[in-house]
Amino acid sequence: MRVSVDPDRCCSSGQCVAAVPEVFDQSEDDGVVLLVLPLPPAELRSAVRTAAAICPGRAISVQES
């Protein structure tokens, strides 16, 4: 699985950070998404899919390999 984020679409809801803090973080200044782990290990993938599904800005893309 490869994750990518689009900071321009991010509206800083923080839901991705709440869902998978190992993979996503937020900028201290404006809360915009920071991608920590673009290639998440198997045990985090289901949570990453949830984060992508609930992102209000549809800023998270998940490419399943």
């Binding site: 509206c11 800083s12 923080g14 937020q26 201290e28 200044d29 404006d30």
Partner: peptide
């Protein structure tokens, strides 16, 4: 306007 406030509501803060 919103981005002036988002920093105050990030999860960690």
């Amino acid at each position: 306007y919103r981005r002036m406030l988002t920093g105050d509501f990030i999860i960690k803060r």
